[in-house]
Design a protein around this nucleic acid. Structure first.
Length: 422
RNA sequence: GGAGAGAUGGCUGAGCGGUCGAAAGCACAUCCUUGCUAAGGAUGCGUACCUUCGGGUACCUAGGGUUCGAAUCCCUAUCUCUCCGCCA
């Protein structure tokens, strides 16, 4: 959520920056609503003030002579007036809140201007995509023929976009999770194991609601399955004043649930785009002065996993048109997938500045002022896609998979995945 | 699931229809006294919004209601605790 006070004082600048997202933005109408609203607040409050004063008079009059009918009728007149003012006020406040809750974050000045992913800018690459002497296979062909991935049976019991992992596949998934968490812990992140179901207000706090409800799974009791651990981790300090002298660094492994509304036909094969997937998430909560430095180091924390796994990747900075709702600046990390012969997103690291903190009401005190913290989040990494990358990049000519060195200890010493019987 | 009890400021805890944004204690901040590692005293100490910068308004879990007036009475929800049952 943007700061209405900032919008008042810098309408033109903010409007210009928001337009870079290629969305229709009209802040002037918001400003007008805000002005009307404040007038009504003043009016309502002064009426209320009168009511209170008169009510006190009634108390005194009753004590003295037991009769206060004259003042009582004055009060009821005031209350009728106030009621009609309040009705208008409520309507206006609703409208303003709606606009604010559905307006995206302001892109940072350094974010390249563009309309879609073609305008993203590569900032670095690492590793060299393998030149295979044989034709590289897709992870799904590899996984199915090795007997470690089963899409058909998953579809039978859960529908499209689910996968059964088994044997060495399931073990590899778990190995990746543990490896990632251990790496992040060594870099100062505290490990969490958060709830997977959250209340609607939590989704509002991190920006999934009210705008993106169709992407979420809702339960029969009104709570939602998390689409990412960013949701519970960022909201950990909801409605609190916290100390940000040192940045809070949190990490968590969780399953993530996404309805994938609107992505019909995209990545239908394999486990690239699933309704349920595992992810290790990184979240930072910090002082506003540090958030852009923290974004750089968080992105490096995510890239570190790929370097240790020896998986080639590139990092791009998203252009204004491709950035998510919450973000002021985002780096995507894309891993090389030889089976698809291209780079695919495996992590997205964003600085959300005070956008989520304002919604979640997370503040800190400085010089007697109450200020909002900055929040950042990034995948560190999407585990399913990492498994895909391992399968495709470590495939051998005979269809077996070599286990990356750093994962061998997490695989109980196993160094290669061969075809499994079932 | 059944039966009770409760939810007040950073914490503990009073208040049970007007003088309550809320006693008291603890914690915290500044200052004073003293002198020595502790004590005494003074003052201050919530959040948010509006403002003609004097002030004003809202908030005692949340949402409704009663009343001229609600932290205080009534209803509903949520959460916490205790006992019983069940359960991974």
């Amino acid at each position: 959520m943007l700061d209405i006070k900032q919008i008042r004082s810098e309408v033109l600048k903010i409007e210009e920056l928001l337009k870079r997202r290629n969305k229709e933005i009209n802040l002037q109408s918001l400003i007008n609503l805000d002005q009307d609203c404040r007038k009504l607040i003043t009016e309502s409050e002064s009426l209320q003030s009168e009511v209170k004063a008169k009510s006190k008079e009634i108390g005194l009059a009753m004590k003295e002579n037991g009769n206060a009918d004259a003042i009582k009728s004055q009060v009821s007149d005031l209350k009728i007036k106030k009621e009609s003012v309040d009705l208008k006020l409520k309507d206006l406040e609703e409208k303003i809140k709606n606009i604010l809750l559905t307006t995206p974050n302001i892109p940072h000045e350094s974010v390249p201007i563009g309309t879609n992913e073609d305008d993203n800018i590569e900032v670095r690459t690492w590793g060299k995509p393998n030149d295979y002497e044989f034709e590289a296979l897709n992870h799904d062909d590899l996984g199915v023929s090795l007997g470690i991935l089963d899409f058909e049976r998953a579809a039978k019991i859960s529908g499209a976009r689910f996968t059964f992992l088994s044997g060495a596949g399931a073990q590899l998934e778990r190995a990746l999770i543990n490896f990632m968490l251990d790496e992040h812990r060594e870099r100062g992140y505290i490990e969490y194991c958060p709830p997977l179901l959250v209340l609607p207000e939590t989704m509002l706090a991190t920006g999934q609601l009210p705008k993106f409800e169709e992407d979420l799974y809702k339960t029969n009791v009104g709570s939602y399955l998390i689409p990412t651990a960013e949701v519970p981790l960022t909201s950990l300090y909801k409605d609190e004043f916290i100390n940000v002298n040192s940045t809070k660094k949190l990490t968590a492994y969780t399953p993530c649930f996404r309805s994938e509304a609107g992505s019909a036909g995209k990545d239908v094969k394999g486990m690239i785009r699933q309704h349920q997937f595992d992810k290790v998430e990184l979240v930072k909560i910090c002082h506003p002065d540090n958030s852009y430095d923290e974004l750089e180091s968080m992105t490096d924390d995510a890239e570190n996993i790929l370097r240790k796994l020896n998986l080639p990747y590139r990092t791009v900075v998203l252009c204004t048109g491709d950035m998510g709702f919450n973000a002021a600046k985002t780096y995507d990390i894309e891993v090389w997938l030889p089976g698809q012969n291209k780079y695919r997103e495996i992590s997205s690291c964003s600085n959300c500045t005070d956008f989520q903190a304002r919604r979640a009401n997370i503040k800190f005190k400085e010089d007697k002022k109450n200020l909002h913290v900055h929040t950042l989040n990034g995948s560190g990494l999407a585990v399913g896609r990492t498994l895909v990358a391992v399968l495709e990049n470590y495939q051998q000519k005979d269809g077996s998979i070599q286990i990356p060195d750093v994962l061998v200890p997490y695989m109980n010493g196993k160094k290669i995945i061969n075809k499994e019987g079932k």
